[in-house]
Amino acid sequence: MDSTLLLGHRKPVLFFSAGKDSLACLLLLKPLLDRVTVVWANPGAPHPATVAYMGRIRSWVPNFVELVGNQPSWIRAHGWPADVVPIRATTDGEASAGVGSLRFQPYLSCCWANMWAPMLEYLNASGSTLVIMGQRKAENLRNRLRDEVVQELDGITYWQPLNEWSDQAVWAFLRECGAEVPPFYEQGATSSSDCWNCTAYLDHNAERLAYLRRSEPERFAVVHTVLEALALRQQQEIQPLLRILED
């Protein structure tokens, strides 16, 4: 990997999620890791397999920082994250509709509070001017940096060295390196598992929940109960719209 960008910046950071793409970045950077801080934004409810995996990464990475959020407390205060949120089941909605069995919130709010905001705070506090990320333009879940390999935003340069890589290319590189990947990929997961109890990102989360069902059935039962309540609440909210459309 070309080290030119690293040499021109203060305190380069690799955001490492335990996903296959950030792992590929880590391995590409291996000869240069003495210059890079590997940062794991742990939202506060990591899967035990992720914790164990991060421990193994930490054991050989020279500079490793763990940022810890408080997702369980955030959920208690604001509700469970959801892709489609019943408004009357949010904290704001309760003011007019009364308290239901469970609250829900937009998943972006939960991720921002417990993962993305701590990352930004770390960057501002550390004075880092270069962030390396595993984002690829072939993914359908991407941040606002989108398709640029190198882009500057708010005084920080973001470098996405895998931007042009296909999913197959990432896997081929990891196999060539003999890399260990987290176990939820065995179930067909396509991205990292940030929180064991995530009830959002359902188009990506099914395989990770399948791993949770097999590895920790008691925890899976908690998530399943919340998803059942969410489905019921969504059905209740959509019925008036469906009746109008049927007329």
Rank of each mutant, 00 (worst) to 15 (best):
G8K: 15
G8Q: 15
H9C: 10
H9E: 10
H9Y: 13
R10I: 07
R10T: 12
R10Y: 09
R10L: 12
R10P: 05
K11Y: 09
K11L: 14
K11P: 02
K11T: 13
P12W: 15
P12M: 10
P12N: 14
V13N: 08
V13S: 00
V13E: 00
V13H: 02
L14F: 13
L14I: 02
L14H: 05
F15T: 04
F15L: 11
F15Y: 00
F15M: 00
F15N: 00
F15D: 05
F16G: 06
F16C: 01
S17D: 07
S17W: 10
S17A: 05
S17P: 10
S17C: 08
A18I: 00
A18K: 00
A18C: 12
G19S: 03
G19A: 06
G19N: 01
K20S: 06
K20F: 01
S22W: 08
S22T: 05
S22R: 14
S22F: 06
S22L: 06
L23E: 11
L23D: 03
A24W: 09
A24F: 07
A24M: 03
C25Y: 13
C25E: 06
C25F: 14
L26P: 07
L26S: 06
L26A: 01
L27F: 02
L27D: 03
L27K: 09
L27Y: 13
L27Q: 07
L28E: 12
L28K: 15
L28P: 01
L28T: 04
L28W: 13
L28Q: 12
L29F: 14
L29K: 14
L29H: 14
L29Y: 12
K30M: 08
K30V: 01
P31H: 15
P31S: 13
P31K: 13
P31V: 08
L32G: 02
L33F: 07
L33E: 10
L33G: 03
L33N: 09
L33C: 10
L33T: 07
D34N: 09
D34F: 00
D34K: 04
D34T: 00
D34H: 06
R35P: 01
R35Q: 15
R35V: 03
V36P: 09
V36F: 01
T37C: 14
T37W: 06
T37D: 14
T37M: 09
V38I: 07
V38Y: 15
V38A: 13
V39L: 14
V39S: 12
V39P: 13
W40Q: 03
W40I: 02
